[in-house]
Design a protein around this nucleic acid. Structure first.
Length: 419
RNA sequence: GGAGGCGUCGCCUAGUCCGGUUUAUGGCGCCCGCCUGCUAAGCGGGUUGAGGCUCACACCUCUCGCGGGUUCAAAUCCCGCCGCCUCCGCCA
């Protein structure tokens, strides 16, 4: 949800943002119109209600004819109040509907256009020089680390077993990420992975991405696609204290995605799966600090990629590919030797006050309260195994382990195929 | 799954049986002022949040876990739901 004042003060900026995203600019005018309607009907209701209350104070002390006359008047007023209240509720609903369909206003500098219109900010690390690169599944199967056949047998396509080195790599990457987060001052969190509808909606995932989300119908809960959801909901409806700087949480969780719109895409291996693990950074900070915090999240992601010695590039995601909540998004993409392309491994979003508005997360100021900014970024996922295996593979099918991960693999510096 | 208890403006708390003089009581904490060698005490005032209208002050509406209902009028009566606690049952 957007700040109404921003829309009232500068509707052209919001229209421009909508255009950059490829969303209808008319939404802005629908919202402004709904806002006027809401205020008018609310004013009428409040006027009648005040009249009713004043009348109600006279009734207890009145006697006889006077009392009967007052009661008669009060009955008519009561009917009018009910009607006005219903009208106000209706106008509010129209307003809420209009407000919820507007995406966040993009930050200045975000590239316009769709998925293909990203801007590459930098490229870091050496791409491996491999004559015949094996892909991650071939490597993973030889190492007895990844088993997609049995995953499919037990749970269907896009499910997998991680065994042996595979399980150790997953735990190792996540543990390293968690250690990194803790050393940077994040509070480590194991959050729930099933959440209520209002939390899922509050984070902006029930809009265009509703089809991506698993719903447990029998209990009206949603499975989260990222711990961002639970971490954003953590302080929902709260007034938090940011006087000591941003509140930072690092969530470790399973993540669930239906991948409904991606049939036929990344079907091989574990690049695109229904269930994986992720360590996610989440920050609550003041709006004026959000852009700086965004850069910090990105820097910590790059530290992790550096520790795993992965070649990557950083892209500034274009407006049309931001998702509803983000005002700006930086993705890190690791090199994928088998496909000679880049693959998203992290995503850092600045959601400004968009999520906080929907979830009611505020801070106290001298003049009341105001909504805070929320940001999130990936510090490690199961998918990183893909980049790790492929980039560190050697000609004989073994895989070199970067020093940072060795403690999690029994000190091994090389993973050898199992005969 | 069954039985019972609880949910009031930071914390505690009065009010709910029996609807209206409640503009939700009092205490603690906190903020401002007075007093004062300093501090404490004392005195006075303020202190939920959201929205509307305002240059601003003021004022108005909503908010007693949430949502409905009854009524001229609901913290209070009725229905549904949610959360927490205790006990019982069942089960990983």
């Amino acid at each position: 949800m957007l700040d109404l004042r921003v829309i009232r003060d500068d509707p052209d900026r919001v229209r421009a943002s909508q255009r950059a995203r490829g969303e209808p600019p008319e939404f802005v005018d629908q919202l402004l119109s709904a806002d006027r309607g809401r205020r008018e009907s609310l004013a009428e209701f409040e006027r009648l209600r005040a009249e009713q209350k004043a009348l109600g104070r006279q009734i207890p002390s009145a006697q006889g004819d006077e009392k009967r006359a007052l009661l008669d008047k009060a009955r008519h007023l009561g009917t009018a109040v009910k009607a006005a209240e219903a009208a106000a509720d209706g106008a509010q609903q129209i307003f809420d509907h209009a407000a919820l369909q507007l995406a966040n206003v993009v930050e200045d500098g975000v590239p316009a256009g769709g998925e293909e219109n990203y801007v590459v900010l930098r490229e870091v690390g050496e791409r491996p020089d491999l004559a015949q690169p094996r892909d991650h599944l071939e490597l993973g199967e030889a190492l007895r680390a990844i088993d997609v056949a049995r995953g499919a047998k037990v749970s269907g396509s896009r499910f997998y077993f991680l065994t042996g080195f595979g399980a150790q790599l997953d735990i190792g990457i996540l543990s390293l990420a968690m250690a990194k987060a803790i050393s940077e001052g994040f509070v480590p969190v194991i959050p729930p992975t099933m959440v209520r509808p209002e939390i899922m909606g509050g984070t902006g995932f029930l809009g265009a991405h509703a089809e991506e989300v698993y719903r447990v119908e029998s209990d009206d809960l949603y499975l989260v696609g990222t711990s961002e959801v639970a971490l954003a909901g953590y302080h929902a409806e709260e007034i938090i204290d940011l006087s000591g700087g941003p509140l930072r949480y690092a969530g470790w969780s399973a993540c669930y995605r239906r991948e409904a719109g991606s049939h036929g895409r990344d079907t091989r291996g574990i690049i695109r799966v229904h269930q994986f693990h992720k360590v996610e950074m989440f920050s609550y900070c003041r709006l004026e600090d959000a852009a700086d915090e965004h850069q910090r999240l990105l820097a910590w992601e790059e530290d992790m990629l550096g520790a795993l010695e992965l070649p990557y590039r950083v892209i500034d995601v274009a407006a049309g590919d931001l998702g509803m909540s983000a005002a700006r998004k930086f993705d890190c993409e690791a090199w994928l030797p088998s496909q000679q392309r880049w693959m998203e491994v992290t995503s850092a979003s600045n959601c400004t006050t968009f999520q906080a508005r929907r979830l009611g997360v505020r801070e106290r100021t001298e003049n009341g309260t105001r909504h805070v900014a929320t940001l999130n970024g990936t510090l490690g996922t199961t998918r990183w195994i893909v980049a790790l295996l492929e980039n560190h593979q050697q000609a004989d099918g073994s895989v070199r382990v970067p020093p940072a991960l060795r403690p999690y693999l029994g000190g091994r510096d090389i993973l050898e195929p199992v005969a």
